[in-house]
Amino acid sequence: MGQVSINENVMDLTPDGPRLKGMRCNNCGNHVFPMQSGCPKCTSDDVEEVQLGTQGTLWAWTIQGFPPKAPPYLGEANPEKFEAYGVGYIELPGQLKVESRLTISDPSLLKIGMEMEIVPETIGMDEEGNELVTFAFAPSA
């Protein structure tokens, strides 16, 4: 029993942590996450898959204060056991702003512009008993 990516089409789980798979447009240089077949900026379909950056700055945030509905949520949805978590957009220089869970859930510790980096977060278990790992952003060490 090990750890597996929540979805290998959007995220590789490496020994160094999660790596997100985005789209880069070869015509205009625009980025989108996750990978898709065409560019919404210039309408070109000459696009390729690239690995997104792992560090950036916090652009917007909120705190998820109630358990999301399951499905689709794979984490703890029982109101008795649920713990609030942060959600935000992290600006990855030269690429895009990616929406992500945040490891911080205390509003007083979150500031727009703060430096953050990607980390793994175990969200649940798959059918074979492996830990399902998604991505989150934490304040840079």
Binding site: I6, Q64, P68, P72, Y73, L74, Y85, V87, T134, F135
Partner: peptide
């Protein structure tokens, strides 16, 4: 495919 977006606790309009 596994629904990674809602599965990870995003995909809520409230957020």
């Amino acid at each position: 495919e596994r629904d990674w977006y809602g599965g990870s606790g995003m995909a809520l309009t409230t957020q």
